[in-house]
């Protein structure tokens, strides 16, 4: 244990407005939701922020519901909540799959979707699923609220469009109103309690409306735009042949920019991206 509890303050405001008011002070507050990222940094003596604000008690940030043409999910929704929700299973099946493949029970009971997004790790598991569901994120501050397209949320390694005075309050994905095919596969360091080495998520709606996202192969989770375009046109033309798959896979591999790190190598990530992409595309041929 290398963190010092005395070196940090932590407050638990009673409601969202009080939390936002504290953030508006601009004193460098760090938000603490389920703590499964923040407390790990604390344990290792790497938590630099002196002031912390707990939001775990803000029940207004919980809840999964359909609102108009969207499924909205509160920022404090845990992996367990996602797995147990029939609405998520119906409207965001890749998100449910991703939640099931995350960590293990105790972490899933505490880790939140808001924390997973805000933590902005390129190896996070929910983001690739959120990307293929056309997710939007609602950011709120004392001065107002805004919806941002999640595809533009991450701007670089661990950087986002979120301002220091803002909180993620919820996310939303469009309801599934037409048959959708989807694919999710995470390759981790082992079969449970594992951080991703490569993650691929994909969805195809209305026959040729395609989303493909990669995790762990670039500084942020990314949409594979070129692959999406090529796959969409191949599907639209009814021409997704094995040859087309090979061509698109090659484009996809070029789109990924994996690196070497302590968990794996760029070479491995590149080859697995290739193989998984092929497996993913072949599943859409069938």
């Amino acid at each position: 244990m290398r963190g010092d509890a005395h070196a940090h303050t932590l407050v638990a405001p009673a409601d969202l407005d009080s939390a936002l008011a504290l953030l508006a002070d601009n004193k460098g507050h760090r938000v603490l939701a389920g703590g499964t990222d923040v407390m790990v940094a604390f344990e290792r003596g790497l938590l630099r922020d002196a002031r912390l604000i707990s939001i775990w008690q803000l029940d207004e940030l919980r809840g999964i519901a359909t609102v108009g043409r969207h499924l909205t999910i509160g920022a404090l929704t845990t992996y367990t909540d996602l797995i147990e929700s029939s609405l998520v299973a119906e409207h965001a099946p890749t998100l449910a799959a991703a939640a099931r493949d995350t960590a293990a029970v105790a972490i899933r009971n505490r880790g939140t979707i808001g924390g997973n997004i805000a933590n902005a790790s390129p190896a996070a598991d929910l983001p690739p699923a959120l990307l293929v569901h056309d997710c939007e994120v609602e950011l709120r501050s004392a001065s107002g609220a805004r919806w941002v397209d999640y595809a533009g949320f991450h701007t670089g390694y661990k950087t986002t469009v979120m301002r220091p005075d803002e909180l993620i309050v919820r996310v939303r994905v469009p309801l599934v109103d037409a048959p959708m095919r989807h694919f999710y596969r995470k390759v981790g360091t082992r079969r449970a309690q594992a951080i991703s080495k490569v993650c691929i998520s994909a969805s195809v709606r209305r026959g040729h409306d395609v989303r493909i996202a990669f995790g762990s192969v670039a500084p942020t989770v990314v949409r594979a735009r070129i692959v999406e375009r090529e796959l969409a046109s191949a599907l639209a033309a009814g021409l997704l042949s094995t040859e087309a798959v090979s061509r698109i896979v090659a484009l996809g591999v070029a789109e990924a920019r994996p690196i070497d790190d302590i968990r794996s190598t760029a070479e491995y990530r590149g080859r697995v991206t290739r193989n998984l992409l092929r497996e993913c595309l072949m599943s859409f041929v069938a």
Partner: peptide, 23 residues
Amino acid sequence: GEGECGACTVIMDGRIVNSCLVP
């Protein structure tokens, strides 16, 4: 101390948590 081993597991409000990660 980092949520990985589960030796610190307790039940909090009906759910198991890693007590090393709960402030």
